[in-house]
Design a binder for these strands. Structure first.
Lengths: 338, 338
DNA sequence: CTGTTAGCGCCTTCAG
DNA sequence: CTGAAGGCGCTAACAG
C-alpha cells in the first residue's frame, strides 16, 4: 500500500502538496497538480481513511444494532438506513444482538473503540446501560422501534399502542368479545405498548381485559406457537387472536392448524407487521404495517443531523403511524359465540 | 474522550505502563497495575482502536457487499457472516449494491480507504474490476453466491447447475415436456448456471431446449411477473415453469393467477430458493433450498483464514449442495398435454 | 504557490 | 519492572 509520502517522492513535491491535491484545498499550480495526479495514478494510491479519522476525530461510519436481522421488518429498516447513510457518505456497521443485553453491551464497547460517529439502536431490553455509555462519550444515539423507559433519547418508532388499538377494535366491531393477545417479551416497550392498545380497545367497548388473555413470549415463530397453544387452552376459548408481530402470527397459525381450527371461520387473527409483499403469494393477514423503510431512513437523517450539531437541544421523538390492511384472516366469530 | 495520556497522568505513570496494563503485556508490579486500573475506571477510558489500527495495519473489520439485503436469501447469508465474524472478534460493514456495478466499485473504494481487512462479495455483474482493485492491494476477497468468469478467486457458492438440473428432471418425470425457465440477468453466473442445468436435464431426456423457453430478467418480483407473462404467451404454452429465485417465483405466481391458471392443475412451478420457513404459513413451492446461513459462515471462515495467511496458495472453491423439497406447486401436466 | 513542523492515540524498541 | 523516543499516515498552522 503506497502512502502519501510515496506519491510525494514520485512527484518530487512535499506530502503537503499531495494532500492539497487530494482534498482540493488551497491553490496549486496546474502543472504541479498534473504531476501529482499522475503519480497517484501510477501508484494506484488510495488515501488511508484511518489516519484522516485519527486527526479529524470522525470516521464517517455509523452503526446499526438490531435484535434479529432475519426478520424482514428489521431487514427493511436496515435497507433504509444503508441507503440513506450511503447517500450521505457514511458506512454502516451492522450488529445483531439476538435480543441479548450482554451482546448489546459488548457491541457498544467495540463500536466506541472503533470511534463510530453515531449509533442507531434497537434496544434489546429496557436498561439504560449501553446508551448511557454512549451518551457519556457524547456519541449521538437514535433509538429505533423501541424506547427505554426513564431514559430520554432521540427516537424513531411506530405507534404501537394506536396500531394495536385499531386492530383490536376491528375485531370487536366484527363481534368478538374474547380476544387474546400474543405479545413479545414483557421487558420490551413495543410488546407492552401493544398490550396497552389491546386493553384500551377492550375497556372502551366495555369488555373485560382479563389477565388470562394476555400472553408474553418471544418475538419468534416458536414463541407464537407456544403462546397460541396456551391461549387455545383458555376456557372459554378466545374467538380471536391479536399477535404482536409477523413471526408470532406465523407461529400462531401453525398452532391453529394443528388444533384443526380454520381461520377466520373458527377463529380470527390480526397482527402487527405484515409478511413482506415480496414474499406473499396470497396475502392473508389483517395487519398493521409499520413503515419500516421510512423508519430506517428518518432515524438515519435524525442521527446525521445530530452529527452536524443540528436539531433541537431536547430529545426528539418521531412517531410514525402504521397502515392497516384488512384481509381474510379476520371475520365474525362463529355463530355460537355471537 | 480520555486518552492513554490522561490515564497515565492520573495514575502517575508513563503511557507505556498504561499500554502494558491494557494489553496484559510485560511485567507490571501488582500495585502499579492496581493504580492504573483504578484510573481507567475513574475516567471511563476506552482505548481508541483507530490509533491501534494505524500502527498494526489491521482493523478487525471486514465488509459484506450484497446485491439486495431485503432478499431473505442474502439476509440469511448476512446473519451467518455477522455471527461468525463477531465470534472471531471482527465487525462487519454492510453494503448494498442493488445489482449496480458502479455502486459496487464505489463501495470497494471506500472500503479500501477504511482499511478493511477483507471482503465478502456478491458480485453485481461479471466484471473483474472491483476485485482486481482489492487483489492489487493484497486485500483478501471471498466471492459469495456468484463467480466472475475468467477471474480465479476464493468462492463459496451453491451448486446452481445441479440444483436446476434436479428440479427440471423432477418436472420431466412428472410428464412435462415444455418447461420454461425464468432466470436472472444473463450477466450473472447463477442465472446462466441455472439455465445450463435446465438445458442439461432437457437434453438428457431427449427434449429440445428451445430458446423460446428461456427468459432472462431481474431477480425480482416484477422481473418474475414480466417473464411469466412472456412465457405464457408462448405457443404452445409451457406446462411448467422453473424460476431461478424466490422473488421471481412470487412474481410468476401473480402472473399465473392473473391469467386464471391454477397451480399445479393447469401449470406447475418449481423454484430455486424457498420462501423462508419463518414467513410461510403454508409452504407451497417445490424448491431447491440453498444453505444460506452456512454459505455466509463458511465464506467468513475462509476469509478469516486468509487473513491469518492460512489456506492453500491456490484459490479455493467451496460448492455446497442445495436441498430439495417437493411440495404442492408441482404435479403432472394437464391431461391434454400428457 | 509550496514546504516545515507538530501532533492525532497508540505501541515497538531500547535504555535505565 | 518502568520510561523516553520515534513513527504509523495524514493535515492544520504557520512560514517562506
Amino acid at each position: 500500500m503506497s502512502t502519501i509520502a510515496d506519491v510525494a517522492r514520485r512527484a518530487g513535491v512535499s506530502k503537503m502538496t499531495v494532500s492539497r491535491v487530494i482534498n482540493n484545498s488551497g491553490y496549486i499550480s496546474p502543472d504541479t497538480r498534473e504531476r501529482v495526479e499522475q503519480a497517484i495514478a501510477e501508484l494506484g494510491y488510495i488515501p488511508n481513511a484511518l489516519a484522516r479519522s485519527l486527526r479529524f476525530k470522525q470516521t464517517q461510519t455509523i452503526a446499526l444494532i438490531v435484535t434479529d436481522i432475519t426478520n424482514p421488518f428489521f431487514t427493511t429498516i436496515a435497507r433504509g438506513v444503508e441507503d440513506t447513510a450511503s447517500e450521505h457518505g457514511f458506512s454502516v456497521i451492522f450488529c445483531n444482538t439476538d435480543e441479548s443485553r450482554e451482546e448489546e453491551q459488548e457491541y457498544v464497547r467495540v463500536l466506541i473503540q472503533k470511534q463510530i460517529d453515531g449509533l442507531l439502536l434497537v434496544p434489546a431490553r429496557s436498561t439504560p446501560d449501553s446508551i448511557a455509555l454512549l451518551q457519556d462519550k457524547t456519541i449521538p444515539v437514535v433509538l429505533l422501534d423501541r424506547t427505554i423507559p426513564g431514559r430520554p433519547a432521540d427516537t424513531v418508532r411506530c405507534d404501537s399502542e394506536l396500531g394495536a388499538y385499531h386492530l383490536v377494535r376491528h375485531l370487536i366491531e366484527l363481534g368478538h368479545r374474547r380476544i387474546a393477545v400474543l405479545s413479545g417479551p414483557d421487558e420490551v416497550t413495543t410488546a407492552t405498548d401493544r398490550v396497552a392498545g389491546w386493553r384500551r380497545a377492550l375497556l372502551e367497548a366495555g369488555l373485560p381485559a382479563l389477565d388470562d388473555l394476555v400472553h408474553y413470549g418471544a418475538f419468534s415463530v416458536d414463541g407464537g406457537y407456544q403462546m397460541a397453544r396456551q391461549a387455545l387452552a383458555g376456557k372459554p376459548r378466545p374467538t380471536a387472536l391479536f399477535t404482536a408481530n409477523n413471526f408470532i402470527a406465523v407461529g400462531a397459525m401453525h398452532a391453529l392448524r394443528e388444533a384443526g381450527l380454520r381461520v377466520p371461520e373458527d377463529i380470527s387473527l390480526v397482527t402487527f407487521d405484515d409478511l413482506p409483499p415480496t414474499m406473499a403469494i396470497d396475502p392473508f393477514f389483517t395487519a398493521a404495517m409499520q413503515p419500516a423503510y421510512e423508519m430506517g431512513q428518518q432515524a438515519t437523517l435524525l442521527l446525521l443531523n445530530r452529527l452536524e450539531g443540528k436539531g433541537p437541544e431536547t430529545t426528539q421523538e418521531l412517531i410514525l403511524p402504521p397502515q392497516f390492511v384488512y384481509r381474510r384472516s379476520s371475520g365474525p366469530p362463529p355463530p355460537e359465540d355471537r
